[in-house]
Design a binder for these strands. Structure first.
Lengths: 228, 228
DNA sequence: GTCTATAGCCCGATAGAC
DNA sequence: GTCTATCGGGCTATAGAC
């Protein structure tokens, strides 16, 4: 994903050609990453409107005025967070459409990748979920151009596998269920912790999640027995 | 659910015993319902912090000062919305634990009820989801006391059915998947509409959702063949 | 690049006339 | 119960000294 939202003008302003440039650029990049990381957490916790620039700045260890030297506006910072999360997600997912494995195995890995993303980047997942649930008013265009085509292709691929086998469940809804279930291990972690009584979610917990969800998907395809 | 958050003091102030009382009380109740309905929509669209009292008042057709005559604070209004949604949800769900049907049939009805709730009250579902995803900072206590016990019981019931049959998937994660998938038809409706290209979700769409999800659950239990 | 100061705005909530 | 008026506060964003 491109970095359109970055403050290019300021980068261009750092005197080019001097020996100090790369070092300064490095520091700037590091600081940007710190800010983006904290922004992701704060936006996930409080939503776009609930989060304040001060909150994020304090978490990143600088003043809000200083933060706004690196990012031109709260809105731009928010979009960068969403861009980075979406970018990471698209890179992490091995699309069903581009896999040359047999379908049950491809689905198994698909579920694993999505589940691992929820675990590795829960705050990012939650920021994305908050945006979509609230109607994606700020981000609908990006979703339409970057997410929807990938998902449509995956559904079509799954459908092409299912049809000759006369599987009668819907490929579309099967994919919806996979997204929803895997996503929920980031989004609803709070509620899961309350139900299980655990304060954090362990390796074993996620392994069970993966196993159960895989059995559900393969079970619906009528090949549960082939997956033990 | 009780109505602790209602402005009892004002109700008590309406001169009791007169013929006009019931009519006035009726109007008040109606107006309260209008406000609550609009509040649910606005909170779902913008979150607690993004929503303003003015937004809700305008949607309900009164001034914000007038709205705050009926609800003492934005916070109280928000909690009433969540209370009402949770109340409705608990009444709508025929808990697995209290069903005397055979398990596959009980699960089928459970999925149907949850799916119907997502369809009937999408805004309420989304307000609840936004609250949980953001860490349920305002509502954790209510979830702990009213939601978690029900879900724990359902998981235990399902587990008691699974164990003698040596089903090796996890009852806990099976239930998590059911909640997540059914909930997503309210929460991620926007994204689903973008993927399917439809502007609204039809009867047939929900029927397919129900069928597919049921097959997934029963398939994981190894009784897919018993469900046609 | 990092400060202080502040503009400009909108918010939730209250007071009080009618 | 419904108005007008307003207070006090927090917010994003900008200006300008250093």
């Amino acid at each position: 994903m491109d970095r359109t939202h970055r403050t290019r003008s300021i980068e261009a302003a750092t005197s080019p050609g001097s020996a100090a440039v790369s070092r300064r650029a490095r520091l700037r990049d590091d600081l940007e990453q710190v800010i983006l990381g904290e922004a992701e957490r704060v936006f996930a916790d409080k939503g776009f409107d609930g989060a304040t620039v001060s909150d994020i700045a304090e978490a990143a260890g600088l003043s809000k005025q200083n933060l706004m030297y690196y990012f031109p506006s709260k809105q731009a910072l928010y979009e960068r967070v969403l861009d980075d999360v979406l970018d990471d997600w698209l890179r992490s997912m091995n699309a069903l459409a581009h896999s040359d494995l047999p379908m049950p195995q491809a689905l198994r890995l698909y579920i694993q990748a999505k589940l691992e993303f929820s675990r590795r980047r829960p705050a990012g997942s939650r920021v994305y979920a908050l945006e979509v649930i609230s109607g994606a008013k700020q981000y609908a265009q990006q979703i339409k151009s970057k997410v929807v085509p990938v998902l449509r292709k995956d559904i079509a691929t799954l459908n092409r596998w299912m049809e000759p086998r006369q599987v009668k469940v819907s490929a579309e809804h099967l994919m919806f269920a996979i997204w929803a279930a895997t996503q929920s291990y980031a989004d609803f972690a709070t509620q899961m912790q309350l139900v299980t009584g655990r304060s954090s979610l362990s390796d074993a917990f996620f392994a069970q999640a993966q196993e159960t969800l895989t059995q559900m998907v393969l079970g619906a395809l009528g090949s549960a027995e082939a997956s033990a």
